[in-house]
Amino acid sequence: MKQPFPLILAATALAALLGLPALAAIDLGLGRHGAGPLAGGVAAGDADLIRVGSDHDDDEDDDDHDRRGHRRGHNDHDDDDDDDDDDCAGAAGRRGNPAPAGSVAPPANGLFGNGAPPRAVTN
């Protein structure tokens, strides 16, 4: 106890090391759409760790959806099985498809903690 400062410094460093990530997860609600109780906590650098258990589409023929789209006002398009998302795309389509899980961090909507990244498995 003659020299408490090294201990204090060590404890403070430990606090910073362990506490700052916890503070970073607290949502301050500064300009986030739909901010909830927590900020989305997965940093962009962690995105590489996100894995999706089933990376194939169980639909096995996503192009089937194209036919529905054609029935709804796009009958001038052909019914080929191309995979071009620009065909018959509405407003959402023009904005592009969302980034799949594993490619980017989840949205900062306040629902997610900063623990394990989202995973999905289809059985």
Binding site: D55, D58, E60, N97, P107, A120
Partner: peptide
Amino acid sequence: PAQINGITGASVGAGRDLEITLDL
């Protein structure tokens, strides 16, 4: 799409189970 960036996966076939694990 920004609402679901990073949390989008495949559609799910009839009769299948989808198990999603999230840190909530």
